[in-house]
Amino acid sequence: MKTLRVELVAADRAVWSGEAKMVVAKTVEGEIGLLPGHEPMLAILASGDVRITLPTGEAIKATAAEGFLSVEHDIVTIVARDAQLA
């Protein structure tokens, strides 16, 4: 099964990175769910939760504020000024 490569970075450090099955994040237009094979996208992040579902089915929750979400070739980069694992 294809997976997403997820990178969650804050201004002063990398918060989390790894493989994931699904990523749910909140953009200014509303919540968005990303699965492997998603079209390239660049969105402004609204402050809120980011939920990352690992291939094992486990879920990781993080909060992110003021940032961006970019998707390209199954690489999801969430860049936020403040981000931390909940």
Binding site: D12, L42, S70, E72, T77
Partner: peptide, 16 residues
């Protein structure tokens, strides 16, 4: 520690 952030931002800017 700060370089992943600037790298990610740079990549995003380049994309646009």
């Amino acid at each position: 520690a700060a370089s992943p952030y600037s790298r990610a931002i740079t990549r995003a800017v380049s994309a646009v």
